[in-house]
Amino acid sequence: MNHLPQAWGRPRDDIYGAYDHAHFQTAAGPNQHTQSPIVTGTSVVAAKFKDGVVIAADNLASYGSLARFTDVKRLRKFNETVVVGFGGDVSDMQYLDRLLNSLDIRENYSSTDDPLNAKNLHTYLAKVMYKRRSDFNPLWNHLLIAGLDGESKPFLASADLLGTTFSSPTLATGFGAHLAQPIMRRTIPDENSVKDVSKEDAVKLVKECMKVLFYRDARSMDKYSIATITKEGVELDENVQLENQSWAFAEQIRGYGTQTA
């Protein structure tokens, strides 16, 4: 069996020959949409605490391995109760940002109705992502939606380019899902432990994760945005410098390239 997912559900080349799309009317073969992201942002990390959520993402947009743009804000405040963090393709993020902007304008036509909360927005964005992937034209992003739900309780959930949704007291996208998530789970293993975490603890935890990510993720940078969402509103700092770095551990790394000792 061929274990590559792209081979699943189609005739085997070794038996039937390469797929012949000559029967398509278009000369170029079947219609193709985005096959890969172009300019990308890396991890977004977020954690719930006692009375809110903290979320962070660095300010880098990479073009392949080139650090192309160094002041890209990947946390977008929707209103006083929701912040969305974007990983993945930057132009798709800009599209989604405009989509959220037009939604916000419509929502504010009536000053008397309740504003959309984080849960509402997550449902909406998950629908958008799923619709696009079902059209075979995905928005190449992994989103974290952080804020408060209808009962003003902390809310944190993700939606990705496949339309998959997931919720957890701590979440991270991209490289962070491998590197930051285990660190955060040490402090916040489950929903029950959220009530014991203060805002300061959560911010410290997420900042620690940003540092680890900068150490080990070659598509990251040392300048990032961080936001906390509580009943008091959104506190967003888009220009935080990574501090107290110590590269001493680099000495200990073995196994890559030439070693002298």
Binding site: S110, D113, L116, N120, T123
Partner: peptide, 12 residues
């Protein structure tokens, strides 16, 4: 309810 998981406001 489907798109926003929200009961539609009556004014709307």
């Amino acid at each position: 309810r489907l798109t926003y998981d929200r009961a539609i406001p009556l004014s709307e």
